[in-house]
Nucleic acid binder design. Sequence first.
RNA 1: GCGGGCGUGGCGGAACUGGUAGACGCGCGGGACUCAAAAUCCCGUUCCCCCUAAAGGAGUGUCGGUUCGAUUCCGACCGCCCGCACCA
Length: 895
Amino acid sequence: MKTRPATRVRRMLMSERYNTRESERKWQAAWQSEGVFETRNDDPRPTYYVLEMFPYPSGRIHMGHVRNYAMGDVVARYKRAKGFNVLHPMGWDAFGLPAENAAMERKVHPKEWTYANIAAMRAQLQSMGLSLDWSRELATCDPDYYKQQQRLFLDFLAAGLADRKTAKVNWDPVDQTVLANEQVVDGLGWRSGAPVEQRELTQWFFKVSTYAPQLLEALDGLDRWPDKVRLMQRNWIGRSEGLAIRFALDAASAREVASLIGVNELEIYTTRADTLFGAKFMAVSPDHPLATRLAKNDSGLAAFIDECHRMGTAQEAIDRAEKKGYDTKIRAVHPFDDKWTLPVYVANFVLMDYGTGAIFGCPAHDQRDLDFVRSVGLDATPVVCPPDVDPDTFVIGDTAFLEDGVIINSRFLDGMTVPQAKEEVARRLEKEMRHGRPIAVRKVNFRLRDWGISRQRYWGCPIPVIHCDRCGVVPVPVCELPVRLPDDVAFDRPGNPLDRHPTWKHVACPKCGKPARRETDTMDTFVDSSWYFVRFTDPWIDRPTNAAAAKWMPVDQYIGGIEHAILHLLYSRFFMRAMRKTGHVAIEEPFTGLFTQGMVVHETYRAKDGSWVSPAEVTITSEAGGRHAVHATTREPVAIGSIEKMSKSKRNTVDPDDIIETYGADTIRLFMLSDSPPERDVIWNEEGVQGAARFIQRLWRLLRDAKSMMGSGAPSPNGEALAYSPPALAIRKAAHRTLARVENDIEHLRFNVCIAHIRELANTLQGALSELDEDEARAPDVVAALTEAMRILVAITAPMAPHLAEECWQALGATDLIARSAWPQVDRSLLTDATITLPVQVNGKKRADVTVPREADCAAIKDAVLSLDAVKRAMEGRALRKFILVPGRIVNVVI
RNA sequence: GCGGGCGUGGCGGAACUGGUAGACGCGCGGGACUCAAAAUCCCGUUCCCCCUAAAGGAGUGUCGGUUCGAUUCCGACCGCCCGCACCA
């Protein structure tokens, strides 16, 4: 009989709790003083680049950061142990509006505010024990960084990838600045509350659209990106195939226009050329040149266009807007029938920056067109009939018919399918010539537009050009970079401080030497984040990139929030192509692996008066009737509300600092990684945190128990093959099986499952320990197996709970840091057993298990199965119909 | 409206390519240790039937299909979540 381990030993160990705070401080200092995580570019080992999206220095890290960086750190530490030269840097997305708001509200300079925030957040990140190479730290507001960015801009400009054009922007007349679409709420500026105007401003653009086809096609190759993100990008780029058709304008009705703008035709873009015989009208955008010209002699039209502009660009306004048009009295001629003319409207729902800014309208097969004709009193003739409907009775009600069908009412197209009709129209019209050109050409269009990067703000990267009255736009010579932001600026007035600075913008033209003006716009902060990951490969060099260091690129594993699925990732993909064209990198795709993690969410709490109460002020009690909450100090009852994303407004945030202070970094890391799959939201709850903290202590106790059980027993010194007794072999098998699983889990970023597997091993080892008596525990084979298993357990825990792992590693007698130690090797021979246990089903229901030798053949297994009691019982009086064996997996007896 | 995803115990979730549903944790119940509490350890915990056990039955949102076998594949429906949205 086995005896339980001596309680004497247990009691002695009780008091030895793992001291989180002391240990974490100690190992962080050790890692730092030894420069363990500093990566050398000349290290010859294979490289691995893991990166988390760098944070905006708002002043405090939040749980979302903790989750993001905990995940990246697991990968970094794992790959390092696996022998890779791992690049795992950190920096700051440091330009942006909040710094200017702080300047306005608190009279603190954006630079001071930003760098103070960075210092605070750096300290917080360091307290998490992340394996980051801080020697490569950068902030995008460092002149060293934006100097290189300005250089890239000049190269892009020279290569034709940047240009200036006028664009409509949201202009806040009070703050005197351009607003992003999301800063316009109900047509009003979010800060000033003033009605936002549409203004035409000359802006700098990066020509993203140049690469639209490549950006789309290359998505197929990004097989380590989430499908969801690829799909979102695909939709955003929005490729469509269609036809650009030139409609002649009816001579009589268009005489006036023809003389004004010298045109007698209107070019439209359509993807539904098959519905040409269902055309009822033409429409142009209020910003179309035709509309602009006509408005000069038509005050009614001018008023209509004005009204369209006032509508604003806010999504809500657009959604609500009724489709309206203004009849120009001009008529366009149908391309297949000289006698057939169509009215031309100026319509509020036609966009100038897509296609040609003009359309033909077929109300029967386009919902917008249908909505529109209802407001102007035209009818809808169906030209595509659903497959099972009688064409004679088919009428269009309130819904346009958008699907495929049979073409009707369309002369030579009748009877065709939609694709056939499209092809036929294209074939005919591209052969027909007018003014020496075909009437129609096939055209591929993209929704993706050029990227407007001009911002009328101070706290951003200055655009390095000079405006000269004689020479036009003159690039700042490279030797004069960086164009530095002046420090002496005031935020007492709205508008761009750079623009009203007394001296900053006045410079001599680099070309002619005459007085000229600096560009006072700065770059969109998305520019800063479009190439920082390349800069990390050599942040010290006085060029944007270093070809030798670029061996790190592309990033092997990028981790961040889904909110950047489109803009940041698309801009970065554009940047790589632009940087390649200008000779800065040799690659096109910046991130081969992408992972988007879920949010951190938490219950919300509300006091009687409806005000939000923060979790820190709430005490939860659980009774038979469920969970109840009271205010921690007033004892007033508090209502437990829905689970929401942690946000300041709902006060349901939990401060990582508090948790680290109370439970330690390993606990917060472990909790962030366990419970929920990483791509899904994780619910922050105190019980879960305590569970993680308990596990830390449990591992520590397990280690001490194992050590004291083994006592002075030592593994066989020269490592010769030991004959392992069954208990020792069981320990080894459990350890190696877990090791193999954990590797697989981390490779697939399945951290929650990984932790479950580690816990499972801890449970197994704990059980094994309690089964052993003291003599057994000191046998050389058991000591060897236990030592090996404990080392494996500690090694696989190290990526998630690195401080605890260092402490355990040392306790196991290791002389080097685990952060510098190699990952254990799986012994594959331990993963297979001599016998296998197969589940036995009868008619697909599991009834029993059968254990057979691994190499048993089908007949032998069949005999064993049919002699099982459970199988016999089920078969009583019935004949075996079929015996199914899936080797190594399952047996199914069909009766 | 268009596109995508997800529905598994009291809860978070696990289940490799169609092969033992509920790993692991939380919570809960019971017990041990203790003068007591905390901590810790052990046992139990999908539901139904049952004193208990054995044995059985049902069960992965609903309904149907394919299959020896379906959480997994197919179809319809219900519910929730996300993205895009006048893109012609």
